[in-house]
Design a protein around this nucleic acid. Sequence first.
DNA 1: CACTCTCCCTGAAAGC
DNA 2: TGCTTTCAGGGAGAGT
Length: 273
Amino acid sequence: MPELPEVETVCRQLEAEIVGKTINEVSLRRSGVRIPFPKNLKKDMENSRVKDVGRRAKYILIKLDNGNTVIAHLGMSGRLIMGNNPYTPKKHDHAIFRLSNKKSLVFNDPRRFGLITICNDRKLKEHPLLTHLGIEPLEPSFNGRQLYNILKARKAPVKAALMDQESLVGVGNIYACEALFLAGIRPTRPANKVTYKEVELLATSIKQVLEKAIESGGSSFRDYVQTSGNKGYFQHSFQVYGRSGKPCTKCGRKISKITQSGRSTFYCHSCQK
DNA sequence: CACTCTCCCTGAAAGC
DNA sequence: TGCTTTCAGGGAGAGT
């Protein structure tokens, strides 16, 4: 399930694979996934050259040399994988981008929670998908003070507040659980009741867990793979996520599993206060 | 307004 | 063994 580290890993690999390449042909194998593919997607991509690959929150931004940017989101199960050219489509391949270098970029997404759309660069900043996004936790400016200002305005459980993409981006269920464990904060605490000192540690923990996960090529817990099809390996470093009933790595007591806002939360009742 | 719930979707895993 | 049920969750929109 792609969160910031997985999306960042895909972006870095895509950058190495497709920047400078021309998109010779776009083949759409259904009308869309979470949202419809725009009518002009094929026309606006074909015969353009990839200038740059970037990321905003969990969105992948592929900048083309014709003034357009492709916006891609992997949702839960989306994959962007390099394939052959010509390419024989597999199950759940929804879009295939034939490149100028004997390779294809393939968008595969069994659950179809992802999306691919395109936007003119002049309007990119006002694009509805991108306007309501919060701060980037890996920006150098991100710190405890910034996070405290966000959390002090929220009465929701701190975990829910962390996962709200309008406040802080890129942190999903896995890394919210992991960061709260590292900081020793119980996920059920109201966000505005977490002290400044705790939030400072939380900000550090978020940065740390995201950076470590990127170093590991992301977490391949269920669906996620890199553009090569290889798996990340940060899932082996999980302290709490998916470990209910197993011993806490700090105190040895059993990890708890509860539901918050319809999502599973894993935490140590002893280490997280 | 702030927050939670529901829905979308498929495949893996658990349950019977 | 094989069928059925449950669960996973990002984000939009509905509901409280």
